[in-house]
């Protein structure tokens, strides 16, 4: 981040600074409102990854990597996938089929707690896997050049 960046991109940086928290908040809205409206883990994960990418486009890749380390991104991706699979195994242990959410909770006939719980947990797994993978892919590309040169804008 040389002097040229502070001169040329001051508007971009201010606007991004204001926008990024709202984009992240919208990502979480999409995640946790997915049962009621369009959206869910895939879209929310992508939106959260985009907030990181926007940050790194404006402020540089190195500060982004210091905030969210590549190791953390990869770990989140793997953990999300395993979390999803773990719900399936939990259902197996509960006496149902793989990913049969009704078996997660012991409830009377017609109850939906198990379904709700299963869907919420697997959507969190999807969110983590997608956001982590997308961030890792972006790091793999963008990490090969340290800064975006001014003429590339």
């Amino acid at each position: 981040m040389g002097k040229a960046m502070t001169d040329h991109h001051v508007i971009l940086r201010i606007v991004a600074k204001v926008l990024i928290p709202f984009i992240a908040l919208y990502g979480f809205y999409v995640q946790f409102h997915g049962e009621y409206s369009p959206g869910g883990g895939f879209q929310a994960g992508v939106i959260l990854a985009v907030t990181l990418i926007l940050y790194s486009l404006i402020f540089g890749i190195a500060p982004t990597m210091r905030a969210v380390t590549p190791v953390f991104a990869r770990g989140v991706a793997a953990f999300g996938f395993l979390l999803y699979a773990a719900v399936g195994i939990a259902a197996l242990i509960g006496g149902g089929n793989f990913l049969d959410y009704d078996a997660l909770v012991d409830e009377p006939e017609g109850g939906h707690l198990g379904q709700h719980l299963g869907i919420i947990v697997i959507e969190i797994g999807v969110l983590m896997a997608v956001a982590g993978s997308m961030t890792a892919i972006f790091y793999a590309f963008a990490g090969r050049v340290s800064e975006i040169r001014d003429e590339d804008w």
Partner: peptide, 12 residues
């Protein structure tokens, strides 16, 4: 992608 292109830590 990370296995092919590297983990990206080189930028740091």
């Amino acid at each position: 992608v990370t296995l092919l292109l590297g983990f990206g830590e080189r930028a740091l």
